[in-house]
Amino acid sequence: MTQTSAQGILRPSDSTALALGFTGTLGNIDAYISAVNRLPMLSHEEETDLATRLKNNNDLAAAQQLVMSHLRLVVSIARGYLGYGLPHADLIQEGNIGLMKAVKRFDPDQGVRLVSYAMHWIKAEMHEYILKNWRLVKVATTKAQRKLFFNLRSNKEGLDSMTPAQIDSLASKLDVKREDVIEMEMRLSGRDVALDGSSDDEDEKFAPIAYLKTDAEEPTNIIEAQQYDRLQSEGLETALAKLDPRSRHIIESRWLKNDDGSGATLHDLADEYGVSAERIRQIESAALKKMKTALISFN
């Protein structure tokens, strides 16, 4: 098996991989490709034996040998997708995931070689990776659009726009509408626009990032909003429960009766309790301090 280190370097996953042909640290993609091409290929009998051991006994060592011997297949398939501008190493890594899925599901009793079975899984993982990462905006969401996406580039002759005849021919070949071919060609040929300005030009200050950004989904803001809502409900009720009945009544009458904050005045409550307005203010101040301590503990 292979894995990617924190520095993005492709390495064999363990000593078993080294025993199968890897030697030393693979510091770049060329070294990795050279190493996997030196790994021995399996005969039909060896492949069947390993696949049977995996199927019947869940033999992970057999699974590893099956994967390692087919890493060169992933490299070969990945070369066909370099035209989308994505890193070769990333394509290989995604293809390796597809290969491992294929090995896990491979049934030697079906009478086909693993190489034929694995190609579907390898390409599927690469296709998914390309569609998710090639552009910020998804260019292919339906099965027909995916088919068109991966065939349009190879069917175009040169970099010029397709002629009406070429559009009709491709639409007929792929069984899609000619309008879909035209739209996909426009989306694939459109240039990328930087989200943020890359110069000091005044015009660059109005790059898309200026009007597309929003703080609504910023994780910190979401957490703060959730904490605030919790304090407004559970936290406030907990703090009020710490007060004696008179103090709670004063706080609720002063601050919680109306949404606009226009509660009872100090003089209103002074008349209700038969004390001075200053005494109501003192009770209110002490109650607010007690609530603040309770809210801090709650949070």
Rank of each mutant, 00 (worst) to 15 (best):
T2E: 09
P12F: 07
L18H: 15
A19T: 13
F22H: 01
G27S: 13
Y32C: 06
S34T: 14
N37W: 03
M41I: 05
M41N: 08
E46I: 01
A51E: 10
A51H: 09
T52N: 04
N57C: 00
D59W: 10
Q64H: 11
Q65R: 13
M68A: 11
L73N: 14
A78S: 15
Y81E: 09
G85D: 12
L91P: 10
G95C: 10
V103H: 03
Q110P: 00
K123H: 03
A124D: 12
E128S: 15
K132I: 03
W134G: 10
V139Q: 14
T142L: 09
K143V: 14
F149H: 07
L152F: 07
A165F: 02
L170Q: 02
L174N: 13
R178C: 02
D180M: 12
E183S: 10
E185A: 11
A194H: 11
Y211N: 08
Y228A: 15
R230I: 06
S233L: 11
L236A: 10
L236P: 02
A239L: 01
A239I: 02
A241G: 03
K242D: 11
R246N: 09
R248F: 06
N258F: 07
G274I: 09
V275Q: 07
R279G: 00
E284F: 02
E284M: 05
S285N: 13
L288K: 14
M291Y: 08
